[in-house]
Amino acid sequence: MSCISVLGLSKTYFITNKKPGLRGAISNFIRKEVIPVKAVDDISFEINPGEIVGFIGPNGAGKTTTLKMLCGLIHPSSGELRVSGYRPQLRKPAFLNQITLVMGQKQQLIWDLPPLDSFRVNAAVYGIPEAEASRRITELSSMLDLNDELTRPVRKLSLGQRMKAELLASLLHRPKVLFLDEPSLGLDVNAQARVREFLIEYNRIYKATILLTSHYMGDITSLCKRVLVIDKGKLFHDGSLDQLTNRFSPFRSVKIKFSEVYPRSLFTKLGTVEHHDQSILKLKIKRTQLSSSLSYLLQNFDIIDLEIKDPPIEQLIRDLFNNNR
């Protein structure tokens, strides 16, 4: 049975359109011009227990709205939703005990107190007995590499430390379903890596299902075998990252080092020459012609080194969203 199932989900917001300046402010005050905006438009997908799925798309694509509907924070305009068998918008305690939402740009920790105090409040709210709570705090803090930070006021912590403490606070009740909205926002490379490792470990130990959004492709490539790509409220890819590259990037980059120098004209019929400098050649070859081109090269030239690469995923995503505009 799938852990998350979404069928024909849509959400329409009504936003007010306000012209700039005082005149705009006055006319807006007298009569608001309300326009409907489809933030999420008829999307459907299923996620199995224990899966880590990346949710990608440009700003304003509808990722956060979808996450919030899955948590039960926003009522969907239409469509069917099930998370762990519950209808999220009812926000039943049994449902809330199984999920968590971590937001990179919002925090729940009490600003003036050490994280431990916030943990204690959360433990009490989720009805975790004190001994059990401290056991979990010890376990999670060692997984997250948190020590002295736990007894320092939150306002004195660095962004990375704070995010780790946020994660601990949100996972104290051992949720089975994690919704992460840009958990690595603003973190440095080391902190990002630490958060990723932690998520992989948490997923392995507790068999938790994770749905995360991120603008850092590193998060997606290292965590998610499967991605959902959404733009302008519509889902237009659901599958592995490889499938995404195959589908939207029909080319491969080939870098070759020859033992001697050949003229450029010999290679132009194979694909687009991106770079040719003495004995080094970079070619962009169509996927479908890759094997024939390679065997031609290997048969006719003296090759020292050969490297085949997918175009960088960032590039691919950027092209994808630009073409879609």
């Binding site: 039960g72 924070l73 305690p93 049994a94 005990n97 968590t100 939402l101 919002k106 925090q107 989720y126």
Partner: peptide
């Protein structure tokens, strides 16, 4: 204003009480 009501609403406790 800041959208942190999200966290309150996701706690398995009466939101009015909180």
């Amino acid at each position: 204003q800041q959208g942190t009501l999200d966290f309150v609403l996701l706690k398995p406790i009466d939101s009015q009480l909180w």
